[in-house]
Amino acid sequence: MLMKANEPVGSGQTGLSDSEAASLYRLMTWLSPSFPVGAFSYSSGIEWAVEAGDIVDATSLRHWLASMLADGAGLCDGIFLAQTHRAASSGDDVLLAEVAELASAFATSRERHLETTAQGRAFIEIARAAWNSPPLDRLIAVCEVAIVYPVAVGLVSAAHATPLAPTVHAFLHAVVSNWISAGARLVPLGQTDSQRLLVELEPVVSATATRALKASLDDLGSATFRADLASMRHEAQYTRLFRS
């Protein structure tokens, strides 16, 4: 039956409650490329991989990023975000402090540590300034180390009662989007190829998010040795566009 123009729309037709709509709005804002955490300044070692000839086109970039997502930084960061969110939401300050410390120590290179801590600091500062939440100040105080990016997202999303599952999916989408953006500028690739890459990596992002949500801290680990070496060798690269 057709609705009249002035007939109120029921919740079954809108699909989102007020709290769900607020959470979606915040996730789209926090993890948008326009949210000023400086992500555009970092390539996570992709710049060295392009110079070394490991990445030469869209296909090789897709393989590289799929590995980073499923077997490297993508999965590990997803696990850290999930564990942070759960510890913060349950009020387990001991576990939260342990997760924050482990995540800070888990960076495989100096540049990777700079990348994730700088983005984490910027994310926290902007969230506190624009999305003030008293619980967030207490959660930050529990973490006595430099807060890395996935932990920062976990803290802010938990403080605002944003559901964990969509937060992890949105976070990994934002991470891979930034990687593709860096690769597009370095290879270089056109906008259409970049969007095709995002489409092709969708199942990898989804599967990695699902794994991260099911994983424990015991499941942390990386097998992307070439990507780790790329991050380390980028520091001594003669010409650089990116900070990592």
Rank of each mutant, 00 (worst) to 15 (best):
P166I: 00
I46P: 00
V142A: 07
I126D: 05
S104A: 09
L139R: 06
L16T: 07
G53L: 04
G154D: 01
G10K: 14
P203R: 07
S133T: 04
A209T: 06
V94C: 13
G72V: 10
S44Y: 10
N132I: 11
Y42L: 13
Y149V: 09
T108D: 05
L139K: 04
D71V: 07
S89N: 02
Q119D: 11
G72Q: 09
Y42V: 14
L114V: 02
I147F: 03
R138K: 14
A66V: 01
L65I: 15
A73T: 09
A73S: 13
H160S: 02
N178P: 03
R26K: 00
H85D: 04
W30K: 05
V148H: 04
T108I: 10
Y42N: 13
L217H: 03
Y149L: 15
S181E: 09
V50I: 06
G10Q: 08
P150H: 02
L229W: 10
D193N: 11
V187G: 07
L136M: 11
I140Y: 01
R121L: 12
A207Q: 08
D228N: 13
I124R: 00
F80L: 05
F40H: 13
A182C: 06
S19L: 12
E235D: 06
I46T: 04
E115A: 15
G10M: 12
A52L: 00
I124V: 12
D93F: 09
S90R: 14
L114N: 01
P33Y: 04
S44H: 15
T239E: 15
L241R: 15
G91C: 08
T14M: 10
Q13Y: 12
F35L: 07
V142L: 08
R240H: 02
F225Y: 14
R233K: 09
V142H: 05
A39I: 07
L24H: 05
S222T: 15
A141F: 09
G154M: 05
Q195D: 14
R240C: 05
T117V: 06
A97N: 03
L198G: 12
R196S: 12
R62I: 08
L96Y: 12
W48I: 06
G190S: 11
S34P: 01
S60T: 02
N132C: 13
L27Y: 02
R226L: 14
T167S: 11
A161P: 07
S133I: 01
A215P: 10
S19N: 11
W30R: 08
V37H: 10
A165W: 03
T210A: 07
L213Q: 05
P135M: 12
A122E: 14
T167I: 03
R121V: 06
A87N: 09
L95S: 13
L65P: 06
V168M: 02
A236S: 11
R196N: 12
T29V: 15
T239V: 15
M1A: 14
T108E: 03
A100C: 02
L220F: 00
G12Y: 12
L217P: 01
L189N: 07
R185E: 01
S157I: 09
